[in-house]
């Protein structure tokens, strides 16, 4: 296995790692922001209530 393709694959994986975990952080952030901004409603027991 030549050096370049291994380092290339590792770089690609590193970027994927960062972007994917970045997405996870983004998701948490997004949910936090949305929940802060929407007015408090009684927590529905299921997803369908009120939708």
């Amino acid at each position: 296995m030549d050096d370049f393709s291994i380092s290339f694959a590792i770089q690609a994986y590193f970027f994927t790692f960062v972007i994917s975990l970045g997405m996870a952080v983004l998701i948490k952030l997004m949910l936090w922001v949305i929940r802060r901004l929407t007015p408090k409603t009684p927590q529905p027991a299921s997803d369908t209530a009120g939708e």
Binding site: M1, S5, A12
Partner: peptide, 10 residues
Amino acid sequence: TIAALPIGRA
């Protein structure tokens, strides 16, 4: 998906 790249080259 990652490992197959260098393996393919080999």
